[in-house]
Amino acid sequence: MNLENYFISQFKNAHIGDDGALIDDTVYSKDAFFEDVHFKKEWMNHYQIASKAMMVNISDAIAMNAKPKYALLSVAMPKDITKAQMRELAAGFQNVAAKYGIEIIGGDTISNVKLDITITIVSKTKKPLMRRGLKKGHLIAYTGNLGRSGKDLKRLINLGKIHKKSKFVNIELRDKFIYNSARFLSCGMDISDGLFSDLDKLSSANKSGFNFYRPVKKNIGCSGEEYEMLFGFDKRDKKAVLRRAKLSRTPISIIAQSVRKSYKNRCKAHHF
């Protein structure tokens, strides 16, 4: 067990274990977006930083088939931040919130040596999509194309440049597909730590492993920061799922079938 999972295991709570905590018909989710951990200011301007911080958090709500309604922002800012940069941050938060119908209702600001952001999203759902629910024989799939975000991150770390429309900066969320397909899906989550690492979470939640139809390259399976959707469904619903993917113009890759065996993650832990 890695250190992140060990720490989480110290909290024995029925609400912990999904992309957010479901209480009645409300989902509460929270993610951090910290300088020198998730980004460097040399890589992104302040507008892009705020936008991505919001998108990362909204992704958790979508992954649970929940509609985000409210946001609480906590922003720790360095003392040398300018008013122009503050305005960029505010615009990034507000524009993404407006796009998804979210009201920013408060939060906290403090002085810090770096720019660190945490956001709480409050969402509503009538049919939550959980990590649990996968059954033997169900198909495993993901949206979009994986690997580009990890590749661009390596470029940035090596002082290279990436395209202004890079997936590492401009996340594409799959809300239309998830909202239209949820009734056919048995489980789901977003891919934030990499395909292999997040399959490990599905495996643990459902006590299952996977028979892959073809090998998945490590640079694809270990690419984090993708924010695509990983999900399972009954093979009898394959046509319905693919039809809704086509209607929402969402690329789908069916990669495996759920089986009763162990699963081993091939990636290093991202956080520790």
Rank of each mutant, 00 (worst) to 15 (best):
S181N: 05
S181C: 10
G133H: 06
N170D: 15
K165V: 06
L195V: 04
K161F: 13
Y179K: 03
I157T: 08
N170A: 06
G160L: 08
I178L: 09
D193N: 10
I140L: 12
Y142D: 06
L159I: 09
A182R: 07
K176A: 15
G137L: 05
F168I: 15
R174T: 08
Y142P: 01
D190A: 00
N145H: 13
K167Q: 14
R183L: 08
I178R: 00
F168H: 13
K167L: 15
K165A: 12
D193K: 12
L134Y: 04
G144Y: 01
D193S: 08
R174M: 05
K135D: 07
L185N: 12
S166Y: 12
K161W: 08
N180K: 09
K167M: 11
F168T: 07
K165W: 08
K164W: 02
N145Y: 13
K136S: 03
C187Q: 09
D190P: 01
R155M: 13
L139R: 12
R183G: 03
G194E: 01
D152H: 13
R132L: 07
K136N: 09
R183S: 14
I191T: 10
L173M: 03
F196Y: 13
K165L: 10
K161C: 04
I178M: 06
F168E: 06
D193G: 05
F177S: 05
S149I: 06
L156M: 15
R131P: 02
I140R: 07
T143H: 01
R148Y: 14
S166C: 11
K135A: 11
L153Q: 12
I157M: 14
D193Q: 09
K151E: 13
K167T: 14
H138K: 01
V169W: 00
I157G: 10
R155E: 13
R132G: 12
G150T: 07
F168K: 12
Y142W: 04
K136Q: 11
T143Y: 01
S186Q: 11
Y142C: 06
Y179C: 00
T143E: 01
N180V: 00
S166A: 15
K161N: 15
F184M: 06
I171N: 02
S192D: 01
D190H: 14
L156R: 13
G137Q: 02
I178Y: 06
L173A: 04
I162V: 15
L156D: 12
I157S: 07
L173I: 07
K151C: 03
E172I: 11
R148D: 14
D175C: 01
H138M: 09
S186N: 14
K136V: 09
N145A: 12
F168N: 07
I140P: 03
K136D: 08
M189Y: 00
A182Q: 11
L195H: 03
A141G: 05
R148S: 13
S192I: 00
T143K: 00
L156E: 09
R183I: 04
D193A: 12
M189P: 00
G188H: 11
F196T: 00
K165I: 06
G137F: 04
R131C: 09
I162G: 08
F177C: 02
G194I: 01
G133K: 05
V169C: 10
L134N: 10
G150E: 09
R148A: 14
T143R: 03
S192T: 07
D152I: 08
E172K: 15
H138E: 12
R174F: 05
L159H: 14
Y179H: 05
F184H: 13
V169K: 11
D190K: 10
L173N: 08
R155A: 11
